[in-house]
């Protein structure tokens, strides 16, 4: 198997596994913010895939998996585009 394919499978597997099995407990900082009583100061912003879910797919694991996979595609595309632009005159 080609390395890129292996890598794609690995990254996707991690996202899908995370979507189904990740803990929903608050993370370290959030836990402390609650314990020390400054959690209410947090302002949660808005974003198209807020809380790792896609509005039309609800809040379930599948929604999170799709949101995560989109993130991977976005990151890989940005790098691909950057590489393309910086090597446009270079066939090496």
């Amino acid at each position: 198997m080609n390395n890129n394919v292996k890598f794609g499978v690995l990254a996707s597997l991690i996202v899908v596994a995370a979507s189904f099995f990740a803990s929903s407990f608050p993370d370290g900082l959030e836990f402390i913010a609650e314990k020390l009583g400054f959690l209410h100061k947090g302002v949660s912003g808005s974003a198209i895939m807020k809380d790792y879910s896609i509005a039309i797919l609800g809040n379930g694991a599948i929604s999170t998996a799709v949101a995560g996979l989109i993130g991977i595609v976005v990151i890989l595309s940005v790098f691909a585009l950057f590489t393309k632009v910086t090597t446009f005159n270079n066939k090496g």
Binding site: I14, A18, D27, I75
Partner: peptide, 29 residues
């Protein structure tokens, strides 16, 4: 190098989604 960077970045992003539970109802990633 750039393709390695693309892979590392997306892998870190994917793995950061995987919160693991620790004691006292807290998680980390």
């Amino acid at each position: 190098y750039l393709s390695k960077m693309a892979m590392v970045t997306s892998l870190v992003f994917a793995t950061q989604m995987f919160n693991f539970p620790i004691a006292n109802g807290t998680s980390g990633h």
